[in-house]
């Protein structure tokens, strides 16, 4: 997996975005997220701005990685579903094809059963989209081909 670059064109991201919007509606949930295993947010349902999506992605990926570590210690291949039950809001987390993490945030206006059923459906749909598209290692060269030390210096002058 070293040097593997998850470099999607906008089209694939849009398709994934579209699917998780549909999942949000069908499961009657509050928000849905698709995160990669190293903690990057791939797509999130439209009105998820009220959440700190970047932090959420890092923490969910850490959570999944830790659970994966526990599974391996116990001789399990993986624990493919995680459920966090809160007082008002709950999270159901599942792996897509071992590559991405699908997260549904929901409250008592829906049920865990419905959320699980719909997630199962969309895990397959998302996996199919991923399998159709192979990560492209060449696109990024357009962006970085002529980058200079000075370009990077400039970013820091603006950034800090």
């Amino acid at each position: 997996m070293q040097d593997f670059l998850w470099s999607n064109d906008g089209e694939i991201i849009k398709r994934l975005q579209n699917k998780i919007e549909q999942l949000k509606l069908e499961a009657n949930s509050k928000a849905t997220f698709l995160i990669d295993k190293s903690g990057q947010m791939v797509a999130s349902s439209g009105d998820s701005n009220e959440f700190d999506a970047t932090s959420l992605a890092a923490l969910v990926a850490g959570n999944v990685a830790a659970t994966d570590g526990i599974a391996k210690l116990l001789g399990e291949k993986e624990f493919s579903v995680l459920f966090h039950e809160g007082e008002n809001e709950h999270l159901n987390i599942t792996l897509v094809d071992g590559k991405l993490i699908l997260v549904v945030l929901f409250d008592d206006s829906t049920s865990l059963g419905l959320v699980r059923l719909k997630m199962k459906k969309y895990v397959k749909i998302i996996a199919d989209i991923l399998n159709e598209s192979s990560p492209n290692n060449s696109i990024h060269q357009d962006i970085f081909s002529d980058i200079t030390d000075e370009d990077i210096e400039k970013m820091f002058r603006k950034g800090s």
Binding site: F4, G10, S38, G39, I143
Partner: peptide, 15 residues
């Protein structure tokens, strides 16, 4: 694994 999102025009690096 650098992440380039062409939809949102973002590049993320993990350090």
């Amino acid at each position: 694994m650098s992440f380039i999102n062409y939809a949102t025009k973002e590049i993320n690096f993990k350090i």
